[in-house]
Write a protein that binds this DNA or RNA. Structure first.
Lengths: 169, 169
DNA sequence: AGGTCCATGTCCGAAAACCGCGAGACTTCG
DNA sequence: CGAAGTCTCGCGGTTTTCGGACATGGACCT
């Protein structure tokens, strides 16, 4: 049988979000409802064909997300995620989680941090392919000159999330 | 965990053979020992990364193979196989199993039989990618003019198998 | 300041190559 | 004349290859 995943939908201040969790309670994907096709594509790419059934995510996950949007900015740090990309991508995504809320990092700095100072664009790419938005905070990476450059969920949402975390833009 | 497969090795009149079976007792791959790399490649292509552990194939399978080489030409008909290719490939492979021992079919005839009279070379291709040799009798397909044309395990073996089945070549 | 060039990893689409063929045209010999 | 061998070309699914595009940024030049 194929991995059995649960798809939940949550209302948030930045729009409806899709949350995919596995049997172990780890988050496999998180995205905005208006990008559902892309989320499914990423899931399929990393885990192969998958059985996705609508249902309720574990309270632990739902509560953490609610708490985050209510102002407890560290609530998401304790949510377990499970991803499955190339070595490079896993390096990037893992480095992302070490950026605390309220801070930002440039693409170049992040590249340096994983030991590939020159793989700057590649970091941007890996960033864009992050299957677990918000929890793995790809929105905290911005251009070296302070511009927001891009965001898979739309730059507007990136700005909103950063503002919510108290970053000056 | 990944699908757990068993790899057995059997001595036969045409050389040592490799037999891969799954937990359900179905044959996933069967090839000659001197083509091991290709067999592994096919397995990987169809099932993804796979855990292959040396071990004994089910008696049901071992006995059927032994019986076939001992002269019971229909013994292999009852062996369950499990393959995973494109639609076209599955059509071809399934049509192959309906060719009884002692008969041969031309590539063109087989193409016609699956409803694609002109996909002649494609049938040849699909034939060559058959992961389960002998049991799925791709050796019973020969050129329209009676020549053996080719065989993944070497034309010599094709000739030997057909001779064993009582075909005049 | 503003423009050009390139490094870097991954994916995607298009195009080309690959063949376990076979029919038909064309030789070549008796 | 014919029979048998050779050559040429088109057939069609799959795989491989190749070229771009990209959530950047530093060096180097005008």
């Amino acid at each position: 049988m194929r991995p059995e995943l649960t798809l939940d939908r949550l209302a948030t201040p930045v729009g409806e979000m899709l949350v995919v969790t596995d049997a172990g309670g780890a988050v496999r994907a998180l995205d905005f409802a208006d990008y559902e096709p892309r989320m499914l594509r990423l899931l399929a790419r990393h885990w192969g064909p998958v059985d996705l059934t609508p249902g309720r995510a574990p309270d632990r996950v739902r509560d953490a997300i609610a708490a985050y949007f209510a102002g407890d900015l560290t609530a998401l740090d304790r949510v377990p995620v499970k991803t499955n990309g190339t070595t490079f991508q896993k390096d990037v995504w893992s480095a992302l989680r070490s950026i605390p809320a309220g801070e930002t990092v440039s693409y170049g700095a992040l590249a340096a941090r994983i030991g590939r100072p020159r793989a700057v664009r590649a970091v941007g790419l890996a960033n864009g392919r992050n299957p677990v938005g918000v929890i793995v905070p790809c929105h905290r990476v911005i251009g070296a000159n302070g511009t927001l450059t891009g965001y898979a969920g739309g730059v507007e949402r990136k700005r909103a999330l950063l503002a919510h975390e108290g970053v000056m833009v």
